[in-house]
Write a protein that binds this DNA or RNA. Structure first.
Lengths: 124, 124, 124, 124
DNA sequence: GTGGTCTAGACCACG
DNA sequence: GTGGTCTAGACCACC
């Protein structure tokens, strides 16, 4: 479920945060379902529990999860987060379009690239 | 011409590299024109010459500039680089479209955001 | 009567203690009336009896209840406790005023906020 | 400047965060002035650098400071934060008034307590 | 020198 | 068992 890429320049805890965000936003992990325990996941990935802890703390801070001492970490309700993510994507699109114009990429080419991306089957 | 944002989390040399890439790709700096000397720029920005040196080395490595011993650094011919940049933008668009579909952003919304970005005046 | 909020960061036993304090101080639970048995309440709330026990022990320690071996826990006479609580509230007000002054909040604004809080209907 | 209270139940890093917030909000530490380095402060307080690091990370997250790798941590512009703090104080006052009414504390008593707090000289 | 990340190992409160 | 905090010591990129 979680894979660490040691060639990735980003810190491990950040990779873990991002991966869980993905799993939660896409509904793979349902609301109130439990995340792996800090210790278990640390053993699984052969990394230090503190690193997992840091990732979980960050997820909680961002509102993706909530944690109960002595019980575990759980997926929070995500409606607002999904909404926020959608806005982020649209903002990114808008920024990208600006950039494209600045570098002389044609509007048609850009939209074609968008349509291509939409068509492609994805195999996660 | 170059402004450093100390609150930006990215390293200073990276900010400098990116800024020169921009100036070069947009044609503000013409081919074979000379970049400011390491010392001058360092004084101008009140930062360590080593930091400028690192930025210039990186620019040369990426093909944006070439350096002549004892003379300075100069802007390289950029046709290939512009082309590469355009491809990058189109790839990014394609990736973004995939992401949008995965998060349930509608194709129309996405294209509207793109068109918006294209319309807007930019005030760099 | 008692509701546990698992998303609340405070420990469960502390939530229970506080809720009983409230019920007792506001007179919902009268003096010498019996609290639910440890086992019953534990079953009701689907939590560990040890957690209830810890809450009851704490309530007794603070003088809100007294326990009779083999009979159960009972609400103590509360006049002193109510008095103590009122003093606590007044102390808190005084502290808050100090803080307000230190951060440059005007006396009038502060008193208006107080009056607002007094006016508002509460819907517990 | 910073004192750790080991009897305090709250974690050390939280005490440090709160203390710096105070110093910054009250203007003792001015905008863009440098905080003690992670290592120095750790030595001064005889605690582990990681604990300071955690405090500084939290301060940055909350917008009180910004950090530059290789340079240090610096106080951020605080206008917005002071404003936020003032609102917090007013909210707290409103909540306190509600509580007071619920426990039968008279409006006059409460306001007197507020006025007392405002009058008192403070000797930090 | 600086902040940032990570490991290893420990202790605590909670349930 | 769980999450949360802390220590000790290390390495990295950056300036």
């Amino acid at each position: 479920m979680i894979v660490i890429d040691y060639k990735d320049r980003r810190p491990i805890y950040e990779q873990i945060v991002e991966r869980f965000q993905e799993l939660i936003l896409k509904g793979v992990l349902e609301a109130d379902s439990q995340l792996p325990s800090v210790r278990n996941l640390a053993m699984d990935l052969s990394i230090n529990p503190n690193t997992i802890q840091k990732a979980y703390t960050e997820l909680e801070r961002q509102g993706y999860t909530y944690s109960v001492k002595g019980k575990g970490s759980f997926v929070a309700v995500t409606d607002r987060l999904v909404q926020r993510k959608k806005e982020e994507v649209l903002d990114a699109a808008s920024q990208l379009a600006k950039l494209a114009r600045e570098y002389g990429v044609g509007k048609e080419q850009l939209i074609n690239a968008i349509l291509d991306g939409f068509k492609e089957e994805h195999n996660d």
